[in-house]
Amino acid sequence: MIDFLEKWSFFGGSVLLILIGLYGVITRKNLIKIFIGLSLMDTGINVLLVSLGYVEGGIAPIITSTINNNSYNFVDPIPQALVLTSIVIGVAVLALGLGVIIKIYEKYNTLDISEIRGLRW
C-alpha cells in the first residue's frame, strides 16, 4: 500500500486535478467558475511537471555552505525553471480573462453563459 502510494500519489493526484478542472470547465454555467476550473488545471499541470524531475533522496539545486559542491544528488532544475515562468504567465492571462468577464457583465448584466448570446451551447 505504502509502495503504491509512494509511486503513484503525485502522478495520479496531479492528473486527477487536471481532470477535475476540465470537468468544471465543461459543466459549470457561471463564467467565474469556468475560470476557477482553468486555474485548477494550471496548478495540476505545474505539479505534474515538477514531479517528473524528482529524485529520491535528492536535494534542492542550490549550492550552500553545507551542500558545498556539485557531487551531491540534486533534483532536476530545468522543470522548476520552466514552471516558475509558467506560474507568472498563468496569473497574467487569468487577469486578462477576468477583465473580459467584467466587460461582459457590463454589456449583458449576467454571468450565466446560457443567457449570453454567442456563448450558449
Partner: peptide, 28 residues
Amino acid sequence: LRAPDVAMAEAAIGTGLSTAIFIITLYK
C-alpha cells in the same frame, strides 16, 4: 519535491494575487 523557488512563487502568486484578482472581479 525539493523545489523551493517554485514553492515561493506559488505561495506568493497562486495563493495571494490570484485570489485577490478573483475577489476584485466578483465585487465588480
